[in-house]
Write a protein that binds this DNA or RNA. Structure first.
Length: 484
DNA sequence: GTAGGGTTAG
């Protein structure tokens, strides 16, 4: 017989997976059609591979349709769906699906729990993450804490502001891999603990783990956010000389960031011009950010104009350039950048802050009044700001039309999203309880100084994660030492 | 008998 090579249901999971990995959408859809025609769509292996493929394509709705169409689904299918929503940027949906899965009495194993922890980490959903941790502990006979699950758990704690718990998990892990060390190093870096991050970098080598390119992104990042320029230069040089790792564009970006933040703008620019690989927009972005911090309008203008052509749709770049002009009181240029943005139809990226209370994630956007307690939140905030003003706080909103690196505009009653989230935290927690907020953009100068004061005046610890790092406010100071 | 799963960075 010559029919041996005819495709059967065993062929399709591999095929779907390959389409997903290769990002070939048209082919993938076609394979899916075949699968349906041949009646294989209900098979668990086929189904999970299809869901995963659509997730990789960024087509969450199609993935969901596959999940819902046939009812033969197991944990692998659900896991593909959770991961799919995560990839598509709908992290809240990922957690929702996890709940649906459990209501259908499918028991999560280590794979699902790992995906869920990644979603919690992203959202800053500490309570959800803690629940997973408790679940893993409860089921320790059936769920083995391997390096991947442990890493996801410690990463969740670090990204949710609990560096102490991240460390505890890390230390207790019997199985560690390079990525576990990387996650812990990055966690320390995010929290501004540069010395500890570098120390751990050496410790991993004493334990015979070889740093890789990602490890270096972690340590270089740590240096950038603590002003440890010499350390960063030394580490960067050692990449090739000692570790035989060729620096990639991201590593150059870290170094440019580090030099620039520390005010060594000439060296930063020199590095951008002399680096052996083509700088990407992120590298120029670091340089532009440094120009804002240090008020260098001359360099800022050159780099800003370049970036506006490289990335005409990135609203953050316009905001940053406009900010640099505003700082130099070049108001005509500020207006021109805004006009350019309007002409090109560039949409601003709205700031949003999340706070998790009672197992529920609340999201706030500036100027948005849809939260049921919005009235109370605004009046609380008004009272708080008045109190701060008595303590010497001066709202810093007069000068710039856009805020830091970003796009938010602030008027008397339009508070930045983190202020709204914090006010909501105040009316929803007991006195003395730590307030934890996660923001999608970077924190601005004004909010930063206001929150410092809030932490002192109201005796509250406030933990704020912005787009790149943590700020622990306590007793009038911030863990970033005002260097961010 | 053959096939489908999770982590760190960007």
């Amino acid at each position: 017989m010559m029919n041996d090579a005819k495709p059967n249901k065993f062929t399709y999971p591999t095929l779907l997976k390959a389409c997903g990995d290769g990002g070939i959408v048209a082919e993938g859809k076609q394979v899916h059609c075949h699968v349906v025609k041949l009646g294989f769509a209900g098979d668990g292996h086929v189904k999970s591979a299809g869901i995963r493929m659509y997730g990789y394509f960024g087509m969450a709705a199609d993935a969901r349709k596959m999940l819902d169409d046939e009812d033969d689904d197991d944990a692998v299918c659900w896991n593909a769906m959770i991961d799919g929503y995560f990839r598509c940027g709908d992290v809240g949906k990922a957690l929702e699906v996890f709940n649906t899965m459990q209501s259908e009495r499918i028991r999560p194993g280590k794979f699902v729990l790992t995906s869920v922890l990644a979603a919690c980490a992203h959202l800053g959903a500490l309570d959800h993450g803690r629940w997973v941790h408790a679940y893993v502990r409860r089921k320790k006979k059936s769920i083995v804490m391997d390096a991947v699950l442990g890493t996801a758990l410690l990463d969740m704690y670090a990204k949710c502001g609990r560096l102490d718990m991240a460390w505890e998990v890390f230390e207790s892990m019997k199985e560690k891999e390079v990525f576990s060390w990387n996650a812990m190093i990055k966690g320390l870096a995010m929290h501004g603990r540069a010395d500890d991050a570098v120390e751990l970098f050496f410790e991993m080598q004493r334990r015979k783990f070889r740093p890789n390119g990602i490890t270096f992104i972690g340590v270089l990042n740590a240096c950038a956010h603590s002003g440890a320029v010499e350390q960063a230069l030394k580490l960067f040089d050692s990449m090739e000389n000692v570790y035989n790792i060729e620096p990639e564009v991201e590593h150059y970006g870290c170094l440019v960031d580090c030099l620039g933040r520390s005010g060594r703008l000439e060296e930063a620019e020199e590095l951008v011009n002399s680096m052996p690989i083509e700088p990407n927009p992120a590298v120029y972005g670091s340089l532009l950010g440094a120009c804002r911090i240090h008020g260098n309008a001359e360099l800022g203008e050159r780099i800003g104009r370049l970036l506006l052509e490289l990335e005409p749709n990135n609203s953050g770049r316009y905001a940053l350039l406009s900010n640099i002009y505003a700082k130099a009181e070049r108001w005509d240029d500020v207006a021109e950048v805004r006009k350019l943005m309007k002409e090109r139809g560039v949409k601003t990226n709205p700031g949003s802050s999340m706070i998790e209370l009672g197992g529920c994630v609340h999201e706030f956007k500036m100027g948005e009044g849809c939260h049921p307690k919005m009235k109370e939140i605004y009046s609380t905030l008004k009272v708080m700001i008045e109190r701060l003003e008595m303590e010497g706080y001066v709202p810093n909103t007069s000068q710039v039309l856009f805020n830091i690196e970003e796009e938010e505009k602030e008027t008397a009653l339009q508070y930045h999203s983190e202020k709204l989230a914090i006010a909501f935290g105040f009316i929803s927690t007991k006195p003395g309880e730590t307030i934890r907020v996660v923001k999608n953009l970077r924190v601005c100068d004004d909010c930063h100084s206001a929150i410092k004061l809030i932490s002192r005046v109201y005796g509250r610890e406030i933990v704020l994660r912005d787009r790149v790092r943590y700020h622990h406010f306590r007793d009038g100071t911030c863990s970033c030492k005002d260097f961010w």
